[in-house]
Design a protein around this nucleic acid. Sequence first.
DNA 1: TAAACATCGTGCGTATGCGCACCAACTTCT
DNA 2: AGAAGTTGGTGCGCATACGCACGATGTTTA
Lengths: 153, 153
Amino acid sequence: MSVKDQLPMALRAAYLALHRRSETRFASLGVTADQFVLLATLTRGDALTQRELAGRMPSDPSTVRAMLVLLEKQGLVRRDPHPSDSRARTAALTAAGKRKFRQLWDAGEAIRQQMFDSFEPGEGETLVRLLTQMAESLNADHQLVGESTNSTN
Amino acid sequence: MSVKDQLPMALRAAYLALHRRSETRFASLGVTADQFVLLATLTRGDALTQRELAGRMPSDPSTVRAMLVLLEKQGLVRRDPHPSDSRARTAALTAAGKRKFRQLWDAGEAIRQQMFDSFEPGEGETLVRLLTQMAESLNADHQLVGESTNSTN
DNA sequence: TAAACATCGTGCGTATGCGCACCAACTTCT
DNA sequence: AGAAGTTGGTGCGCATACGCACGATGTTTA
């Protein structure tokens, strides 16, 4: 079992652990871990089209739509027609949404701190760099990676 | 925006990238990325109880059940009553399941290779180590989040 | 200008992911 | 042994995650 073969499972286990932990933490505040991600993305770039938002999260446009519907019901997000493109709709935080996000951010601090504290100095930087590289590599060329299919010869 | 604050999103982005890529790759073989994980787990420890299986993936028992039902329908997995505990059921790969897993493993090689190739020598090892540490830390003490952290020895 | 094409949002179907409640069966305690 | 508590599997509900097809609108091309 080489490191190469362990990597996918290690990544999966780490992400699911984070997700579960976040879910538990945010539940009392009435939002899910993924809704937190959406709110965070809107915080960093307000009035995005749904597609832009989906691209940045990253998530699927149809998933984002479902999430926006729920968040709109909670009054945390507002959707308006796009000023110049009448196909598009922009999403933005409401005042309540901004307030809620600040709460969530604070509530999540313990988790971020705990993740970070499990490392030696510098290792956190390394981890972020490697994860980013990996994601880029995986997203880049799933097209042009030759259709050599499963024959290793 | 410190590294600590980027880490959760970087982890999420990397995992989702891997998941999407795997989903696409395995679709033509008739299974999902998570079903692949289940089959892999059964390959490494046959005749597990559903709970054992869930613990190792890691996944929720009720999710695992749903997956097993689907995999059973495909004839890749068999569930038998546990020999000594009549509450429990064991899950095991069928012959077809073992064959399928070998196919899937080969099909996934390109992805594992691509992930691995985005790193310098030694970085893969580091990544696996850091991810494992982090997952452990996140799973460990969501109960006793007191100030007496890491006594991981 | 009209046709062809691309893009945005929506709705639907399937598969997780997980909590929760429930029953059945095992274990422990009295 | 009997009561009480724990554990295993199931069923249900909600929220992603994503592909796909559809209609409406923008953009490009003939």
